[in-house]
């Protein structure tokens, strides 16, 4: 239990590094708002190795820190909405235990995008961004699946490791 803080620090650092790496990746999908969400990898792992509460904490800390370092307040608001919704959905699906890491991760990716779109709708005060919805759904499935595959592999190798 005394290692908890240390592990949390390591996970935060990892998530921040992934945020940074993601920023460096020059791939632009041609559509604003769509990115890999590499940092979600750490969130998924935290969710499985620890619990929803700590994953939530990690998510918020990561978003605020990464937001201040790499972007701005606006992206923090977008990310917080996406991150929170995504975590709630992931935690619920994980509890059901009828989904594998893949399914949880995909649901997380999709709901992350939905959360961001909802904020965008509130900010722009228009429903016209709705045409964007299907694009974001499919992007969420793809990125979620990708993160799911990696999380699955990492979790397999971490099986014997007890975090704090």
């Amino acid at each position: 239990m005394k290692n908890k803080v240390a592990y949390f620090g390591v996970f935060t650092a990892f998530a921040l590094i992934l945020s940074y790496v993601e920023m460096l990746i020059p791939i632009q999908f041609g559509i604003p708002g769509i990115k890999l969400g590499l940092a979600n990898l750490m969130i998924v792992i935290m969710l499985y190795k620890r619990n929803a509460k700590e994953a939530m904490m990690l998510s918020v800390v990561r978003i605020v820190l990464a937001g201040f370092m790499f972007s701005n307040l606006f992206s923090i608001i977008y990310s917080l909405a996406g991150g929170t919704l995504s975590l709630i959905v992931m935690a619920l699906l994980k509890k059901r235990e009828s989904f594998s890491v893949m399914g949880v991760s995909i649901a997380g990716g999709v709901s992350h995008n939905i959360g961001q779109l909802l904020v965008a709708m509130a900010v722009v005060e228009t429903y016209r961004v709705g045409y964007y919805f299907p694009v974001l759904l499919i992007a969420g499935v793809l990125t979620g699946a990708l993160i799911g595959v990696v999380s699955n592999e990492v979790l397999k190798r971490l099986r014997g490791v007890d975090l704090g």
Binding site: S98, F99, S100, M102, G103, I106, P134, L137
Partner: peptide
């Protein structure tokens, strides 16, 4: 991958298609 995962993927894709 469990069966529910595929159902989830299919459901999301269907919703995207509908929209």
């Amino acid at each position: 991958m469990k069966k529910n995962d595929w159902i989830l993927i299919a459901a999301v894709l269907v919703v995207a298609g509908i929209f």
